[in-house]
Simulated scan of single mutants.
Amino acid sequence: MILSRRSIILSGIGVAAAGALPGIAFAAADTAKRLVFIIQRGAADGLAIVAPVGDPAYAGARGALAEEAATGTKLEGMFALHPALTSTAGLYAAKQAHFAHAVATAYRDRSHFDGQNLLEGGGARPYGRDDGWVGRLLTLLPAAEREALAIAPAVPLALRGTLPVGTYAPSRLPQADADLIARLSALYADDTLLHPLWDSAVKTQELASDIGGNNGRNGADLGKLAASLMLPEDGARVMMVETGGWDTHSGQRGRLAAQLRGLDQLVAALQTGLGPAWNDTLVIVATEFGRTVEVNGTGGTDHGTASAAMLLGGGLAAGGKVSADWPGLAAAARYEGRDLKPTRSVESVISAAVAHHYALDPVKVTATLYPDA
């Protein structure tokens, strides 16, 4: 029997989420709920982040990367969490983290731009929509919960829709070199009006483009910034945070560890900054596609297909779990002989988590977030 994308989405985690909410009337109510979508631009390696160390083919395919993975926190089943994710391991132990593995969008080529467009737009094909799943989600929320903000130079596709949203960083200064930035910083140093705006733009650019820098402290600063923008009574209730640097074609071991350290500190700072509001916060971390099973000749991995997504927060329906219909990593089990094969849609993971978080009808959520499914 051939299944449509919609039937696949509705038959997966969305059904489980609906079953976990007996008696819910599935209608949005005024709440203090918060949602954060962290996109990992560049194709993050799910096989290193949530490593299938118990798969017989993993060690042989991954070599030194597998040795590193084996030192991480052991999760349920055959998986281990990357050792750089120490705070995230604590969330897992507290049942505030859920990892969904072998997931992907419907995209099966390997272009970053096309893959990110489909992840954000939630359409049936790249560039098939000019609005995004987060922007469409806002229409399901009460007016008091629609305040949305992106820490980004422009409104990302995921947040676009019929309702207004804002951005925190009006400019990323893409062509400016360090000398020019230093000169302009000096020029604005004594300007009481422009100096705070300039300083904020520069710092936000530095954080968003390099969360793994400064031994992960860039990520921590970005998390503090996000929390400060969400915690006030009139602050954002829905936020998107862009992170880059996940394209690890070479020297992956050190580069990915730095990125994950930054992500880990970002989430930890967000949790600390939100305080009790963390219990009403859902964080979704996802990437456009995964990376190859085999390591290449430069110690990196190339563009792949399936990856892992993270759900984090104080009110998860199934925290402390790894969910995966695991396809295996043997050569015959791989997608096109090279990639982790997708066995579940990332759309189903997102829609089910959102439906549970906001106590909304899962069918309506899926139809709104992914109308072309």
Rank of each mutant, 00 (worst) to 15 (best):
E76T: 15
V36H: 03
V50Q: 04
P56Y: 08
G42E: 05
M78H: 10
A104G: 07
Y107S: 02
D55Y: 03
P83V: 04
A80V: 05
I38S: 00
E68Q: 13
L35Y: 09
I39N: 11
A80P: 06
G42M: 04
M78K: 13
L35S: 04
G72L: 01
A102S: 14
T73E: 14
Q40M: 15
A84F: 00
S87C: 12
K74T: 11
A97E: 02
V53T: 15
T73S: 13
P52V: 09
T73L: 11
A102M: 07
S87V: 07
G42R: 08
G42A: 09
S87Q: 15
A106F: 09
L75A: 03
F99Y: 12
A94H: 06
P83G: 08
A93Y: 00
G77L: 06
G60S: 09
Y92I: 07
G46D: 05
S87D: 14
G77I: 09
H98G: 04
G72N: 07
S87H: 12
G46T: 01
A94F: 07
H98I: 01
I38D: 00
G90Y: 02
A94K: 15
E76R: 15
L81M: 10
P52F: 05
Q40D: 12
V36M: 05
A59D: 13
R41M: 09
P56D: 06
A48Y: 07
A70F: 03
A57S: 14
T88Q: 09
A94Y: 01
A70V: 11
L85W: 04
V50M: 08
L35M: 10
A97F: 10
G90R: 05
A84D: 01
R41V: 08
F37C: 12
G90T: 02
I49G: 00
L47D: 02
A48H: 11
T71M: 13
G72V: 04
G77M: 00
R62H: 10
L75G: 00
E67C: 08
S87A: 13
L85D: 03
L35R: 05
A51R: 04
I38G: 01
A44Q: 11
A80I: 06
L65P: 01
G54M: 11
E76P: 15
L65E: 11
L65H: 14
V103P: 06
L85K: 07
G54N: 10
T105G: 12
E76C: 13
Y58C: 01
L81T: 02
A106T: 15
H101T: 14
A70W: 02
Q96E: 15
Q96K: 14
A69K: 02
T105N: 10
A89Q: 05
Y58Q: 02
R62F: 00
A80G: 09
I38Q: 02
L85V: 09
P56M: 07
A64F: 11
P56A: 10
A64L: 11
G60N: 08
H101L: 13
G90H: 07
A51G: 06
I39G: 13
A106K: 12
I49C: 07
T73D: 11
A64Y: 09
L91Q: 09
A43W: 00
T71F: 10
L47S: 04
A43R: 01
L65T: 03
